[in-house]
Write a protein that binds this DNA or RNA. Sequence first.
DNA 1: CTCATCTGGTTGTCTATACAAGATGGCGTA
DNA 2: TACGCCATCTTGTATAGACAACCAGATGAG
Lengths: 259, 259
Amino acid sequence: MELTCIDHSGVEPLYYQIQQQLFERIRLGELKAGDPLPSEQEISTRLGVSRMTARLAIKSLCEVGIVYSKQGKGSFVSGLKLEKNFRQVLSFSEEMAQSGRRPESRPLGFDIVPAEGEVALALSLKPQEKVIRLRRLRIADSVPLGIESSYIPEKLCPDLKATFDPRTSLYQTLSARYGIQIAIADEVVEAGLAKGEKARLLRIAKGSPVFIFTRISYVQQGQAVEYVKSTYRADRYKIVNRLVRVKHRFAVQEDAKSS
Amino acid sequence: MELTCIDHSGVEPLYYQIQQQLFERIRLGELKAGDPLPSEQEISTRLGVSRMTARLAIKSLCEVGIVYSKQGKGSFVSGLKLEKNFRQVLSFSEEMAQSGRRPESRPLGFDIVPAEGEVALALSLKPQEKVIRLRRLRIADSVPLGIESSYIPEKLCPDLKATFDPRTSLYQTLSARYGIQIAIADEVVEAGLAKGEKARLLRIAKGSPVFIFTRISYVQQGQAVEYVKSTYRADRYKIVNRLVRVKHRFAVQEDAKSS
DNA sequence: CTCATCTGGTTGTCTATACAAGATGGCGTA
DNA sequence: TACGCCATCTTGTATAGACAACCAGATGAG
């Protein structure tokens, strides 16, 4: 497949069509790691678009890390696997789908409680405001994997408690019924030991290692919409990360506590 | 502080100067969460640059998540904390500096061994090729924090063994002496229990929870340069992540295993 | 042969302009 | 009053052109 047939009619942006064609060629292995992409000039003349448009397409591929550019040399396919999308906020179902496992959820509790302590703090609520609390046992391929407790301000989704089926996707419901699209989440990961009720629910011995996640999800405007605390079995769950080395442009200097 | 004084002499790119000015105003709290940034038009006329240049400055702020744009409305400061840089490849010293702790390293071993098993696989080496192995105890504020074993192909840095002081920064040396700049790393995080020698070195009880990191670092071209396996105390170490919800443009569909 | 220079190709930055598309408020008409 | 249309602001997309910075290979002089 070569770079061809750009639709100039305007239904889809030109740079997006080019980006998708290039991405497809990479995904199919037609362009392999280290291979040079067509130069901006070449794309420009071959497809009859301006160089800036071709450039925009390539830059958007650079942003997700599957391509890199070198001044004076060209743009190249990076040698990184694209098997997984790292750094994503994923729902449990999405996560399981990515790793090819069959997800299942068993509700452990679904009620409305006043926000208190860390929950109120994380969601910027006054201590008396109501939150919807949803506790679920997460199951992968019939094996208990983790326990999740979600807290969502009731004012954001008034009748969620009445209409939501706790076995389905919370994120999908928030998006479809309330127009709440989660854009970013901050997550703290700790390691600990399973004990008591949690060990029993997860069917592991007391003292087994577990991951403890604390996650706050935000919409793009920055408002917190969800606080989640969860415990996952460490023998059946691991975290895969892709880290990037930043070129200290936005390095936030430490507050001068020591000086 | 207002948008002022752009240096047109060409030492620093214009869009970069503008980006830095805006970033500084946000960092100082002069522009708070939810506040609109000056419009592209306004920046353009006020500073005497073209709108595309102003746009480039704003877009680069969007990329790191501290600003978002809405067609027809404007660009706004997002409500996200920028206290930390998330998801970076950091050296131990850099990481400690960010959290305001005093780093220290005690070498536990420094030798050259043949690559075997997982190490050879990760670094794409033939089983007989030599790797430099460096084991270090990582200490923060005089408290043992973790044990790290790094493996680096000897051919990439021939006389490292002879010249490198194991108490200093490995990344800095790789960059300064060999021109090896690490650009990306893939990391797997597991949770486990401390036992035997590791528990003793870390001064924790056997059976205490620990993080187990397995990291492979790459240069931008994709070649692996370092394999690290490390064990960190979970009572003194936690992971902080920022996740983004991607707009399924690059979603890699699952291999059709089920169909 | 060796080394400096030139030259063409590439990405990086920047300008000036244009129209499309979404948001918002006002104005006028029904 | 209520509603639709319009003017105007915003960002999004696209063009054509220009020069700078960088890289690599060819060419030439010594």
